[in-house]
Every structure is written in C-alpha cells, then in structure tokens.
C-alpha cells in the first residue's frame, strides 16, 4: 500500500522519516505511519524528518516510542484507505485482535502510552488506551478500583467520605 506522500520524489519506495526518542534512540519509520500522529503530520508534510535530520520527541522514551510505532505501522494501511470503507471484515477482525493484544500490558506501560498518545495526538491510540483503563474499573466497587490502580488504602476519614457518597447514587450498587 503506497502512502500518499510517496509520490513527491521518492518513486516506488515509501518515504521514510526518523524520530528521535528522549533517550536519543533513532527510529526510522514510513511517513504514512508516523503521520497517524496529528502533531507529527504537519512537520512531515513540510518535509521534516527526512534524510539525516530526525524529529526529536523529548517527552517520549524509546520503550514507549517503539510501542507507539508498532501501533502506527499496524494501523497505517487502514488509515490511508480512509478507515473502514474498503476494509474487509477479515481486516477489521485482525485489527481488533491486534488492538486487544496490544493493550494487554503492564499498567506502567499503559500509563506511558496514554501520555504519549495524548502528546502525539494519535486519536485511535488515545481512544484504545482510555477504553482499556475504563474497562479496568468496570463493575468494580470504589475500594476495588483503588486497589486495582494502586491507590493507598483510605484513611478512616476518607473511608467515611466514600461511604457517604455511595449513598448518593444507590442504584449503582444494586
């Protein structure tokens, strides 16, 4: 699948850009994949990131960036097609399977991803990770949510406050 940018000059081969993580690791990736980031898209359209230059990303470390790019590379072809219209059911199912596995990760990685996705404005990834975190609190009690997310146990005072507020929407605790 040729990326839209591949036409300007670099006939045949897809145009590549270089991204530099906060710990100075260089990642070479197709412009189409990196362009899933709204933040990077403008720079790339202006011709940035090619050749010896790289685009520095001071807020994203290499472990997180490699994970982000894994997502972008997988989703770039569908995004280039304008999303779902041309995608077959098989393609969509494959992307869904990939997404489910992709967020099946350690909470600290999930946290880094949510920050990076927000920073780089990658809409699909933001929504994927936010949904995952929302699923982590689904069906739980306030105490279970605190434990799942590693909040310290509440002080007696906080506990009393929690109990008082639980009365406000009684239907949620049926």
């Amino acid at each position: 699948m040729a990326a839209p940018e591949s036409g300007d000059g670099n006939n045949g081969a897809a145009r590549m850009v270089t991204l530099i993580s906060s710990d100075n690791t260089r990642f070479e990736v197709e412009a189409a994949a990196a362009s899933l980031s709204q933040t990077l898209q403008l720079t790339i359209l202006d011709g940035g990131g090619g050749g010896g230059d790289g685009i520095p990303l001071p807020n994203v470390d290499s472990a997180t960036l490699s994970k982000v790019l894994e997502y972008c590379i997988k989703h770039a072809p569908a995004a280039a097609n304008g999303g779902a219209p041309n995608a077959t059911a098989v393609d969509r199912a494959e992307l869904e399977r990939f997404d489910n596995e992709f967020v099946n990760i350690d909470q600290s990685v999930l946290y880094s991803l949510i920050m990076a996705a927000h920073n780089l404005e990658i809409e699909g990834l933001q929504s994927l990770v936010a949904k995952k975190v929302a699923d982590m609190i689904k069906g739980k009690s306030p105490m279970e949510i605190r434990r799942t997310l590693g909040f310290p146990d509440p002080t007696p005072e906080e506990q009393a406050e929690m109990n008082a507020h639980m009365l406000e929407y009684g239907w949620a605790y049926e």
Binding site: I114, A130, G139, S141, I145, R146, Y169, A172
Partner: peptide, 29 residues
C-alpha cells in the same frame, strides 16, 4: 502514576465508562 494523570486524560478515560461505573468512580477519591 495514575494519580499524576492529567485531568483531561482522566476525563477521556471516564467518558468511556458506563453510568454505573461513573457513579462508583465518584467515590474513589
């Protein structure tokens, strides 16, 4: 980490939660 999550991002998470889970989330802290 989760306590450092900026409000906009926490809101983005909670916006995807069902009403029942939102009502419970109000009691978390």
């Amino acid at each position: 980490l989760w306590r450092l999550l900026p409000d906009d991002m926490l809101a983005d998470v909670l916006r995807r939660a069902a009403p029942r889970d939102l009502a419970v989330s109000r009691c978390v802290c």
